[in-house]
Simulated scan of single mutants.
Amino acid sequence: MLSISYLFLCLIVLKIVKRSIKITLLKMKKTVIVSSPGKLIIGGEHAVVYGRRALVTSIGMRLYMQLTEEEQDNETNKRLLNITFHDTNQYYSIDLLDIHDSYPIEIQGILYIYNHFKSFISDQNQLNIQVRSEIPIGAGLGSSAAFSVCLVGCFYLLYYKKFNQEDINELSYKVECIFHGTPSGIDNTISTYGQSLIYSRTLKKHINFHLSNLTIIDTGIPKSTKKMVDLVRLFVENNQKDGEKILNDIELCVDTMIEHPEQINQLFEQNQKLLKCLGVSTLEIDNIIQILEKKNISTKITGAGGGGCLIALTSDFTKDQILDLLKDNHIKSIYLVECGVEGLREEQTF
C-alpha cells in the first residue's frame, strides 16, 4: 500500500515538474544582437544607378540592433512589437493585429520584415527591437542600409540560427527600396559583406583598397537621397548625350582610382567636378571644397550629394586643424575613419 501511494505521489510531482519546465521554456527569452557598418562611396556616385562601376568601402562606424522574442506578460488580445531607438529616444509599441499605414518609414521597414518571418513567431509571444547607431542619419554614410541589413540579419539569426549573406543582402535591398525608392543596392551590399568593393549591377568584386588619410566632413546640410536620385534622372533624360558622357567619365575616374591609386588626389577633384555637372553639389559644398583646395586638400561629395557628407584626403592635417579651416562653415562633425572593415556580424553585447 505504501509503495502505491509513493508511486502516486511521484507521478504528481513529475507532472508538476514537467509543467514547471514547460512554463519556464515558454517564458525564456530568445535574443540575438548584430551589427553592421556604414559605408563611403569613394567614387561612382549616381553613375552606379545607371550600371556604371563604383568604388565603395565599409567604415568603422556601426549600427547595432537587438531582437528579442518572449512571452507576453499580460493576457490581452494584442500581439505586441516594441521598438526602441536609443539615439533619438523614440519608442513604439505596435499591436500587430491592428496595423495601420501611417507609421514612420523605419517602422514600415520593420513591419515588412516581420511579415516575411511571422510564420516563425508564436502567437503568444511579443517582439522587442532595440537600435543604437554610431552612423549619422541622413549624411550619406549608409545609415538606412546598416539598419536594413541588421534588421534582416536579426531575424535570420533568431529563426535560422545563422547568416545567409546572399539572402540577407537581397531582402535588405527590398527594405532599402521602402526608404529610397529605387536605390542602386550598393549600400546594403557593402553593409552586408563589408571590406571594399567594385560594384555595379553586373559586378561585385572585393578588392584590397585602403586610404590612410581619409576624413569624413559632415556638413550638417540636410539632404534627401531620393530627391537627388530623381534630380539626376531628370538631368540624364533631358540631356542624354551630355548625361551619358558625364556618367562614363565618372566610371573612368573609378577605374583609374583602382589602377593608379597614386593619382587619387586629382581623381577626387575630377570626380567632384563631374558630380557638380550633374547638379548634386551646392554653393555651400562648393565653398567648403574651395577652402580646402587652397591647403591642397582634395575633397569630394560622398553619397547622393545636396548636403550630407564630404570626404577629404587630409594628409597630415589634424581634426582640429580642419575644423579651424572651416570655422565659418558651421560644420556639424568630422570623423577620421578606418576603411574596409567587417560586414554584418553577431555581437555578444548591445
Rank of each mutant, 00 (worst) to 15 (best):
N238H: 15
G220E: 05
L97S: 14
L310D: 08
E237F: 08
D218W: 09
L344Q: 00
L252A: 08
S298N: 10
C309D: 11
K118R: 15
R345H: 13
R132C: 11
I322P: 06
I311W: 14
K273M: 13
T299K: 10
E244H: 04
Q165H: 12
D230A: 05
D249F: 00
Y91F: 15
S3P: 06
Q90P: 11
F350G: 05
L252P: 06
V34K: 04
C154A: 14
V175S: 04
H100A: 13
Y6G: 14
C253D: 00
I221V: 12
L292P: 11
Q348M: 01
T302K: 11
I33D: 01
P261Q: 09
L26H: 07
L344W: 01
I110N: 02
I207Q: 13
Y64P: 03
H116I: 05
D320E: 15
Y193K: 06
N128A: 10
G305M: 00
K162R: 09
L310T: 08
E75T: 12
I23H: 09
I135V: 05
S298V: 14
D123Q: 12
Q130R: 15
E75F: 14
P37K: 04
S224V: 01
V236K: 03
G303Y: 02
N188H: 03
D242V: 09
E176K: 01
N271R: 10
L197C: 00
K27A: 06
S3C: 13
N164S: 09
S298C: 11
E269K: 12
L274M: 14
M257L: 12
G51Y: 06
R345L: 09
V34H: 01
I264Q: 09
H46P: 01
L25W: 10
H180P: 13
N271F: 08
T219G: 10
D101N: 13
Y335N: 02
Q240V: 15
L325K: 07
I113E: 04
M228E: 04
D167M: 05
E338L: 02
I264E: 05
D328L: 08
C10R: 14
Q240S: 15
